[in-house]
Amino acid sequence: MARFGMVIDTRKCVGCMDCVVACKTENNVPEGYNRDWIVTTVNGKYPTLNLEIQSQRCNHCDNTPCVACCPTGASHIHDVGAVVLVEHNMCIGCKACLAACPYDARFIHPEGYADKCTFCIHRVEKGELPACVAVCPTHCMSFGDLDDPESDVSRLIVSRKNHQLLTEAGTSPRIYYLV
């Protein structure tokens, strides 16, 4: 079974938020809510600085506290690519998954259910890339099967130095940031 993940090259990313805008229009994410977002970290003292920009979203973790804590099974791991999804009609809006996510990747949609990045599974199942990946003007994002050693994402992970987010939270996140 495929295990979808993303590799994002922070050297190429300029933090333009195109991924965020594309996600909004593709998925009709309501105004004031984000399924993905940009985090900028600056270290150092002017003019000797280091700046890293990350396009962040749900990490579609291998170890999913959000799915584990869901009392109804609404949060689940999808058959295709082990993508973490929420079945809106099963969600009671208890917000346990929001609290359980160390990345704060989830939110309550104005209609009441827990919502988050889907890796654009509706596009991926048609053979397209997620909207954020497809739109990126810097081509800094790659998407694919982490279990396939020949995939772009697998190759990038072995060939470039990279890190994941908050590995100490024990979630085994599937988004890798190249540095």
Binding site: V67, A68, C69, C70, P71, T72, G73, A74, N89, M90, C91, I92, G93, C94, K95, A96, I108, E111, G112, Y113
Partner: peptide, 24 residues
């Protein structure tokens, strides 16, 4: 506290062994 109140019955159509809320 529930945001999707109409679906509260979903608690009792399943038992999620890893979910303390389901246990509860």
């Amino acid at each position: 506290d529930l945001n999707h109140k109409l679906f509260v019955w979903r608690l009792y159509t399943t038992f999620q062994i890893t979910s303390p809320m389901s246990w509860g």
